[in-house]
């Protein structure tokens, strides 16, 4: 890849324990090109969320990123950023949609105010401009802008998830990290949301790091996929290849743990 947007090199993360350390991420390297959707798949505890948190430096002790690790975004090492630079970097360059993001909205604050929080702390927008931008973002995710004065509980789970995504997009980030963004939603809503994200990235050209344990969904959405096992990246390939010709035994096993809609039954 000539000019990757994100380049993770030899990332090693330990959880420091009293007696011994636990290596959660073991010498992982991968690149994400501009406009690309890269997927990380694996079972729980394999380190995929730890990587997601490390990229926006949201990891907390006892997690420790080992010294030889590098996380380069447009050539700049995220791990070297000063606190001020880090504050400017989050949301503007890398935004994150968390697992069960629909519960990450503030329940006692109106949707419009939550947009303002993000916009006002990162830009010099006036209140009117911020309102304009918030309305524009809501239209992108198919929610009527006149609902900016509503509270989170007045929306369904799928709508709340779309609002979180809209807030993420409000500052035109270059990379959006999505950690199991649709796991709590039913399949129809899940498809609607991911389809919309796919359209948006075609329009705006941002990259996505997509994390899920649903391999079928991942192949549909991602351009390239990395398979993780116990902290290591064991296979990395184009999405079609992961599906058609999985190389690693673990990838094959992962595929066989999904009941297929048209496959055999147990009966």
């Amino acid at each position: 890849m000539n000019h990757p947007l994100l380049s993770v090199k030899n990332l090693t993360i330990d959880y420091i324990g009293d007696r011994k350390d636990f290596r959660a991420v073991d010498d992982v390297s991968f690149d994400i090109a501009p406009g690309e959707v890269f997927g990380l798949a694996g079972e729980s505890g394999c380190g995929k969320s730890t990587i997601a948190f490390a990229i926006s430096r949201l990891h907390k002790p006892p997690a420790l990123i080992r010294r030889q690790s590098k996380i380069l975004l447009n050539g700049r090492d995220v791990l070297d950023l000063t606190p001020q630079a880090l504050a400017a970097f989050r949301w503007r360059e890398v935004a994150m949609v968390f697992q069960s993001a629909m519960n990450s909205l503030n329940p006692v604050s109106r949707i419009g105010d939550q947009f303002h929080d993000v916009l006002m702390s990162h830009t010099t927008m006036t209140k009117a401009q911020a309102r304009e931008r918030a309305a524009e973002m809501l239209r992108l995710v198919d929610i009527s802008p006149d609902r900016l004065r509503d509270y989170p509980h007045q929306f369904s789970g799928g709508m709340r998830q779309r609002i979180v995504i809209a807030i993420c997009m409000a500052l035109d980030p270059k990379l959006v990290i999505m950690d199991e963004p649709t796991t709590a939603l039913d399949v129809v809503v899940q498809r609607e949301i991911l389809q919309r994200i796919n359209d948006l990235r075609r329009t705006f050209g941002f990259s996505v790091l997509f994390i899920t344990h649903d391999l079928g969904l991942m192949v549909q959405f991602c351009d390239r996929i990395g398979i993780m096992l116990a902290g290591r990246l064991v296979e990395e390939n184009a999405a079609e290849a992961i599906f058609q010709t999985p190389g690693h035994d673990y990838t094959k096993k992962l595929w066989s743990s999904f009941p297929s809609l048209h496959g055999g039954a147990l009966l």
Binding site: D142, V187, V188, Q190, R191, E192, L194, Q195, N198, D214, L215, G216, L217, V219, Q220, F221, A239, F243, L261
Partner: peptide, 26 residues
């Protein structure tokens, strides 16, 4: 039919027009 068409299917990518759920139809 809607429910079945939304089940993740690795054979059809999102860019494929067959995968498209049109929000008006939904």
């Amino acid at each position: 039919r809607l429910l079945l068409s939304a089940v993740p299917d690795p054979q059809i990518r999102f860019d494929d027009p067959r995968a498209r759920l049109r929000s008006r139809e939904v």
